[in-house]
Design a binder for these strands. Structure first.
Lengths: 139, 139
DNA sequence: TATTGTTATACTCTATAACTATA
DNA sequence: TATAGTTATAGAGTATAACAATA
């Protein structure tokens, strides 16, 4: 007994909602969508050979990211070049400008997101982030 | 430098998605929707005087929960009685059966959700949950 | 006139399945 | 024929605004 506590999802979900609300203005200021930012992040870590692979990497459907890729390309943030060896596939990579935008957005987000942890003592914040990073890395 | 880490939302979001995927079968087995379970949880803690207040408490829109309330009432899990003092408002409370269902669902969920934390050493799991509870309580 | 609950409408996301172009 | 990317269609979920009953 005495283990009455809310479900993990019930506690995590409001947190995510709050984080998204904090991030939207930052994203809007840099004129990227949430999915756009997600794509930039994935491509900054490593270029990707097919759009389907990229979609899977960020947990989306291949048909769902096309509009996003169009916008990013038009804005000069990514490059989408046909593979000469197999002209069906598009080689995806981030541009220098894309990298710059990603960094700027990230900086903006990481400053704001600390608000969400404000109710924790500083050492606990670090612990929480560390554990979360472990969880994230292990999947 | 060396502070390269994913954004909080980027780490939390996949976690929530995984948790939801784990919960859906449990909810389905007891024939309650996610919102339904959310309502039962809110009402088990304390009865509520208006539907709008309930909606706000669970982060929904007042018009959005009506279908949910209809189902829960039809299933005998909640009671929705007009307030004699102000016949516009509906007094909301959980029934004994509703309480039973909520407990059963919760038990099922809390067993499964530990899978998500499996990659952490046991003491770290407890720490994570404790910090999360603190964050949740403070909002 | 203001408020509670309800219904209706439109809008956004998402999933699925056709379609094209290459192989 | 199979696959990568694209487009089109339909469905679910949500937000907004109109509405009826009561105050």
């Amino acid at each position: 007994m005495a283990t009455e506590r809310p479900d993990l999802a019930a506690m995590l979900y409001p947190l995510v909602r709050e984080l998204i609300a904090l991030e939207l203005p930052v994203l809007a200021a840099h004129e990227v969508s949430m999915w756009g930012y997600s794509v930039l992040t994935a491509l900054d870590d490593t270029p990707v050979r097919t759009q389907a692979a990229l979609a899977e990497a960020i947990g989306a459907d291949k048909s769902r990211i096309i509009g996003t890729l169009d916008e990013l390309q038009k804005a000069g943030l990514i490059e989408r070049t046909p593979d000469p060896d197999d002209r069906r596939v598009r080689l995806l990579s981030i541009t220098a400008e894309g990298r710059r935008v990603r960094r700027a957005v990230r900086r903006g987000i990481q400053i704001k997101e600390m608000q969400v942890l404000e109710s924790l003592p500083v050492p606990d914040r670090k612990t929480f982030i560390r554990l979360l990073q472990q969880l994230h890395a292990s999947r």
